[in-house]
C-alpha cells in the first residue's frame, strides 16, 4: 500500500514529502543501501528531474530527499558556508517541501548536505553527511570509456590513478591535486570525493557518521558507512599531505583548519578566515579571537 505523505509548503502548494514520490524514494534508498553494502562502489540509479539545474547538486538533493524524515534537522552548506545562494536555495527547497527544522549548527544537524567541505567539527554516529558530486568517476580523467572504467573497478585495476599522480609530480614537483583527490575505500574501491578539498580527506577515514554521495547528471550514488577505512592515494616518496595554512583564522584564531581568503576592500586588503562559518562562529561565541579581533565585515555600517 502506498502511504500518502503530503506537505503543504509555505507557498501554499502541496508536495509529496521531500518532493519525490514514495516509489522514487524507495528506488533511491535501495541504491543507497547497495552503496553502503559495497563501500566506494558507484551504484547507478534512475535519477529524476529536479526543479533545479544539474550544477546545483541534484544528486545530493535526491539522496537527502530519500533519507530525510519529519524529525530531521537539516544543515545545508556550500564551500563551508550556510549563506551562499546555492545553500540558501537548497535549504529553502527542503523547508518548502518537508517543513523540517534547519540549522547552521553542525552539532544540531542530523543531516548535513554539502557541496565542498566537511565540517571541522567531528561528526557523530547520529548524523548523515550527503555530498553533492559533479563527477563521480575518478578514472574518467584518463579513461573516457565507461565500459572500460567499470571493468577497471571490477578487476581492481587502479594503476591509472597513480599515472595521474605521477603526472602531477612530473609537472609540478609535488602532487598538486588539491580537490577531488582520489581515495581508496576499505582497501577495495578507488573513489572520487569530488569536489571536496583534499584537506578534508582524512576526515572521511573512520568517520562515525554515514557518508552518502549523489551525482545527479551522472546518475550515480555511492557511500562510506561509519568506521570505514579511507586512504588517500600517494607514492612512498611523495606521501599524501594535507594543505597547510601559514596563519590561523584572522577572527577566531583557529589553527590547522581550512581557511578561505576574503577580500576586505578595494585597496586589496584581505584576510584568511575559517571556511566553516559555523565552526568560526562557535569559537568566537566562546571568546576566541584572531589577530584582527572582531570580524571586519560585521563592523558598524554592515548591519
Amino acid at each position: 500500500m502506498t502511504e500518502r505523505v503530503e506537505t503543504q509548503g509555505i507557498s501554499g502548494e502541496h508536495y509529496n514529502f521531500a518532493y519525490l514520490d514514495e516509489q522514487t524514494k524507495r528506488m533511491i534508498r535501495r541504491a543507497i543501501l547497495k552503496g553502503i553494502a559495497v563501500p566506494g562502489y558507484q551504484v547507478p540509479f534512475a535519477a529524476r528531474e529536479m526543479p533545479m539545474p544539474y550544477g546545483w547538486g541534484t544528486g545530493g538533493v535526491q539522496v537527502t530527499a530519500a533519507v530525510i524524515g519529519k524529525n530531521d534537522c537539516l544543515k545545508m552548506i556550500d564551500q563551508g558556508s550556510d549563506d551562499t545562494t546555492n545553500a540558501v536555495a537548497l535549504r529553502n527547497f527542503f523547508v518548502e517541501t518537508t517543513g523540517v527544522d534547519t540549522t547552521t549548527k553542525t552539532k544540531d544537524a542530523s543531516i548535513i548536505q554539502t557541496r565542498h567541505r566537511i565540517p571541522e567539527e567531528n561528526l557523530t554516529k547520529d548524523q548523515v553527511l550527503v555530498y553533492q558530486v559533479p563527477i563521480p568517476e575518478p578514472l574518467r580523467f584518463l579513461e573516457p570509456r565507461e565500459t572500460e572504467t567499470r571493468k577497471m573497478h571490477a578487476l581492481e585495476e587502479y594503476g591509472l590513478m597513480h599515472v595521474k599522480l605521477y603526472e602531477d609530480i612530473a609537472k609540478f614537483g609535488h602532487i598538486a591535486t588539491a580537490y577531488a583527490y582520489p581515495v581508496m575505500v576499505q582497501d577495495r574501491y578507488v573513489m572520487d570525493p569530488s569536489p571536496t578539498p583534499k584537506f578534508d580527506n582524512p576526515k572521511m577515514d573512520q568517520m562515525e557518521a554515514l557518508q552518502l554521495f549523489g551525482a545527479g547528471r551522472e546518475k550515480r550514488i555511492y557511500a562510506i558507512p561509519p568506521h570505514t577505512k579511507v586512504v588517500s592515494l600517494d607514492f612512498e616518496d611523495h606521501p599524501f599531505e594535507v594543505t597547510k595554512f601559514e596563519q590561523p583564522c584572522a577572527i577566531c584564531g583557529a589553527e590547522e583548519i581550512y581557511l578561505d581568503e576574503v577580500i576586505l576592500d578595494d585597496a586589496g586588503n584581505r584576510m584568511f578566515v575559517c571556511s566553516d562559518s559555523d565552526f568560526c562562529e562557535e569559537r568566537r561565541d566562546v571568546g576566541h579571537v584572531g589577530h584582527l579581533g572582531t570580524n571586519p565585515l560585521e563592523a558598524e555600517g554592515n548591519d
Binding site: 585495476e157 597513480h162 599515472v163 605521477y166 603526472e167 612530473a170 607514492f235 612512498e236
Partner: peptide, 19 residues
C-alpha cells in the same frame, strides 16, 4: 600523458609506488 607516465603505467599497474 607524458612519455615518462606512458612507460611507467605498467609498473604502476603492477604495484610500483615509488615515484
Amino acid at each position: 600523458v607524458s612519455a615518462g607516465a606512458n612507460v611507467g603505467e605498467r609498473l604502476m599497474a603492477v604495484g610500483a609506488r615509488h615515484y
